[in-house]
Design a protein around this nucleic acid. Structure first.
Length: 478
RNA sequence: GGCCUGAUGGCGGAGUGGUUACGCACCGGACUGCAAAUCCGUGCACCCGGGUUCGAUUCCCGGUCAGGCCUCCA
């Protein structure tokens, strides 16, 4: 089985072949840490985390190097630091911690590297120097600018011929630019802003050069896969590519360019300029991380995604179904005679469904199709339970867990999933009521049994009578 | 103006040149004291108009609609 990925540069899905299967490199543009990140910022986090997992599955966990940078030099950070009267590191540190915590709650594995601009400044300055040395950049009035004329392929990634872009009236051309499309590599800091030393005078780096320098410093160029949001194709990735190639004497930059589609909210683009942002941080207080992760992966990663409450609700219900199968099978196995458990054996349908999940993911991360495989697996698990096939239940349960966890799902204990919102106090209360109800039911005292269920409903708890007793769960908030 | 996506049932959303996955929701039945879950079953979904074809939702052309990008927003 081979991994196929859609490459923005060639506009085609193609087989993925890393330069060195023992050292697969992935870089994704990360956040600017000046505030809590909104949910749209986490789409690439979840998408490329999934890719990270698939790559690890294919090449081995140690063979995949994943770098996701952090921009901690930025105007918005400066502003916030000035407002609070603290150093920028206080601001960036605070929101980086929150960002990492939210990413973890969404089931994202920590990247291998998380380089920061402030820690990569030497490499950035050096790369600018290399570009000047290659005549691909020029100093002007305290700035250093990239000379887009030096890169013949400029515009190729985004499919924008240079002349057309100049025609666009929105470009404001600074007088010191040789060409309107030239962009800043280094600029002077404004009074009061953080400053770093450079051969061209004190100042700070431009946005684009940061990523290129961090990739070079952390992974080394060229890399196998470069990822990010579709909105970064131009100018950010176009500029990265130009910088990387020109600084590196015509070498490749990235073999595959991958871009996730935009996340929209209520017909309005989810960006920091719009007021109605939904912070992942807040959403995680209302929904389990896995449900949000599921919602983010509900459509193909290259398609736009409409972010609605209904979407998350459907995601939660879909996951409930899987967790119920897990829960029921666990209960079945707990009650099964131990002698029957050693029989082992393979389960043909289960293995096929597992393979389907894997194949779907390897086909350019087709998550909706992979979800279908997960449900197929849970159906096999169900019928094994119905058929009292202990070995089949064990096998299918293991396959379901393995397939789901490859995608970052079913990592919770089913009990915790359904009763997650309950504290110990509530749990004790519920258990006591259920015990009372069990007695009433044994005496066929239905009015009393129903009264107790109503009492439980009042506690936002739903009871489910089973052959071996009752189970319960926290009801959905209506 | 330039470039580029997309249009599939009540909702979300894959896929395919020839019985329209999957999930959510709904409806009928089984099971259940009731309920939930589970199981069985039903639902005339592929934007419009041409073309290619024995046959198109799938390929080609045109149109309509929606959305994105065009210098620092993932």
């Amino acid at each position: 089985m081979t991994l196929n990925l859609y490459d923005t540069m060639s506009r085609a899905k193609r087989p993925f072949a890393p330069k060195d299967p023992g050292r697969v490199t992935l870089y994704v543009c990360g956040p600017t840490v000046y505030n809590y990140a909104h949910i749209g910022n986490f789409r690439p986090v979840v998408v490329f985390d999934l890719l990270f997992r698939v790559l690890r599955d294919l090449y081995g966990a140690d063979a995949v190097l994943y770098a996701a940078n952090v921009t901690d030099v930025d105007d918005k950070i400066n502003r916030k630091a000035a407002e609070e009267g603290v150093p920028i590191a206080t601001i960036s540190g605070r929101y980086l911690d929150a960002y990492n915590a939210d990413a973890a709650a969404l089931g994202a594995l920590p990247p291998t590297f998380q380089p920061r601009v402030t820690e990569t400044m030497d490499a950035i300055v050096k790369m600018i120097g290399d570009l000047v040395g290659q005549n691909a950049a020029y100093p002007a009035e305290g700035h250093v600018l990239f000379d887009t004329q030096a890169f013949a392929d400029y515009g190729k990634l985004s499919g924008r011929p240079m002349d057309e872009m100049i025609a666009g009236a929105r470009v404001e051309v600074a007088p010191y630019k040789r060409h309107p499309a030239d962009f800043v590599l280094w600029k002077p800091s404004k009074p009061g802003e953080p400053v770093w030393e450079s051969p061209w005078g004190p100042g700070r780096p431009g946005w684009h050069i940061e990523c290129t320098a961090m990739i070079e410093a952390v992974l080394g160029l060229p890399i196998d896969i470069h990822g990010g949001g579709i909105d970064l194709v131009f100018p950010h990735h176009e500029n990265e590519l130009a910088q990387g190639v020109c600084a590196g004497h015509g070498r490749d930059y990235a073999h595959v360019w991958m871009h996730n589609g935009f996340l929209n909210m209520s017909d309005e683009k989810m960006s920091k300029s719009v007021g109605n942002v939904a912070l992942a941080h807040d959403l995680l207080g209302e929904y389990p991380g896995e449900a949000i992760r599921w919602a983010l992966l509900a459509g193909h990663y290259r398609q736009p995604l409409e972010w609605t409450g209904e979407l998350i609700g459907q995601a939660k219900s879909a996951l409930d179904r899987l967790y119920r199968a897990l829960d029921d099978s666990g209960r079945f196995l707990a009650g099964a005679p131990t002698s029957a458990r050693a029989s082992g054996g393979e389960h043909r349908g289960g293995v096929m469904a597992y393979d389907a999940v894997q194949a779907a993911l390897q086909d350019d991360l087709n998550t909706p199709l992979a979800f279908a495989g997960l449900f197929q697996l849970s159906d096999h698990l169900r019928s094994a339970i119905m058929g009292k096939d202990v070995a089949g239940v064990e096998r299918c349960r293991a396959l379901l867990l393995e397939a789901a966890q490859l995608m970052g799902f079913l990592t919770a204990d089913p009990g915790a999933w359904f009763q997650g919102g309950a504290d110990d106090d509530l749990k004790a209360k519920v258990e006591a009521l259920i015990a009372e109800r069990l007695t009433a039911r044994a005496e066929k005292n239905w009015p009393e049994a129903d009264r107790i269920r109503d009492a439980l409903v009042a506690l936002n708890v739903e009871v489910m009578d089973g052959p071996t007793g009752a189970t319960w769960r926290i009801k959905e908030q209506a």
